[in-house]
């Protein structure tokens, strides 16, 4: 009797939980099919493929969403019924309505990436993942608020354009770094994140959108760039994934050193606040009067070395190391600022 009971229980559990055809997985699949996440992710995938010129298929969709082909097919049928996509000989294409929705998802994703990267302290490698989760749970109104809060930004942290509320993609001008003239300051506007191996090399070199670099040497096998802090050597195939344009004079000025590297007693003049520092922190800096040309004095360290107090425009402000490092300065008085050299205004 007992053993019989055990079998019944096992069978029941199997019926309930078996992968693919168990009742619970089935229910979850059904729920997933109807979910906003599934539809939006599918829209993104098909949109991306359209953009790259190679149309999406049920198989590619299944791969991208990491679901069995059977489910991907069911999703495609569902979306076709909703008038979001069409199946043609070459693969899947979006209808105008589908296209419009896809652009909105892209917009939400890139706005969130920007928000998380610039306004919060989420580590860079987690930004994409978190943005991906958030993008499905917002209302259009929240998206508009986010957009306005950040001052209608044009690009996400990778330099990818953020579509406007009406769906227009901002034109990203620029040229490949591969054929940018030698010796002219160039500002990186976009870094392609595919293929990942190449992207990883770019990240490892510390190159990111907003940075100003100068090409100093070019040969068929390698390119040498100079940025504020160091020299970068890239293979041309890697450089081809970086888009640049001529830097405006306001960002092209040589940067000097980071404020965080100065010692108490030293004085320096602010060159600029790093372009990668955006959002809340940049606004605070501006409010406190940390603008190009202002004199800043390192006053004292806290007992544990961080934060450090600085005197700016006659008031004493404490900044943590990583914030001070956003501020580029030029030392005043040839390093001998310890003694005197005080200008009375």
């Amino acid at each position: 009797m007992f053993e019989g009971g055990l079998w019944v229980l096992l069978l029941f559990a199997l019926l309930l939980l078996a992968p693919q055809w168990g009742l619970v997985p089935r229910w979850r699949q059904q729920r997933w099919l109807r979910s906003r996440d599934a539809i939006e992710d599918a829209l993104m995938h098909i949109h991306q493929r359209e953009h790259s010129g190679q149309l999406a298929s049920v198989e590619s969709l299944a791969g991208a969403l990491n679901v069995p082909a059977r489910l991907a097919l069911a999703l495609v049928q569902r979306m076709e019924g909703q008038g979001l996509l069409r199946t043609s000989a070459g693969g899947l294409t979006l209808t105008p309505e589908g296209h419009r929705l896809a652009i909105q998802v892209v917009r939400a994703h890139r706005l969130f990436e920007r928000y998380l990267a610039y306004e919060t302290s989420v580590p860079p490698q987690e930004v994409h993942e978190l943005a991906h989760r958030l993008e499905h749970s917002v209302t259009p109104q929240q998206i508009e608020q986010l957009d306005a809060y950040m001052g209608h930004p044009l690009a996400d942290p990778h330099g990818d354009p953020i579509p406007s509320a009406t769906g227009e993609m901002p034109e990203m001008e620029g040229q490949s770094l591969v054929d940018f003239p030698i010796g002219k300051p160039a500002q990186i506007v976009h870094v392609e994140d595919e293929p990942p191996q190449v992207y990883a090399q770019i990240v490892a070199e510390g190159l990111r959108p907003g940075m100003v670099v100068t090409v100093v040497e070019r040969s068929p096998t390698r390119m040498v760039l100079e940025s504020d802090t160091e020299e970068h050597v890239l293979a041309p195939v890697v450089a081809a994934n970086i888009t640049v344009r001529e830097a405006m004079p306001r960002v092209a000025a040589p940067s000097g050193e980071r404020l965080g590297s100065l010692e108490p007693g030293e004085k320096a003049t602010v060159v600029r606040v790093d372009d990668a520092c955006q959002g809340l922190t940049r606004r605070r800096f501006l409010d406190l009067g940390i603008t190009p040309g202002v004199e800043i004095e390192v006053v004292m360290r806290s007992p544990f070395g961080d934060p450090v107090a600085y005197r700016v425009r006659d008031s004493l402000i404490a900044l943590r190391r990583e914030q001070a490092d956003w501020i580029w300065v030029r030392r005043n008085g040839g390093g001998q600022a310890m003694h005197g050299e005080v200008k009375s205004a």
Binding site: L116, E119, T120, S121, V122, E126, L130, L134, G279, L280, T281, R284, L288, P307, S315, L316, I317, A318, L319, R320, Q323
Partner: peptide, 10 residues
């Protein structure tokens, strides 16, 4: 994690 954050102390 996703809340806005920045440090300054006068």
């Amino acid at each position: 994690k996703g809340e806005a954050s920045s440090f300054t102390l006068e």
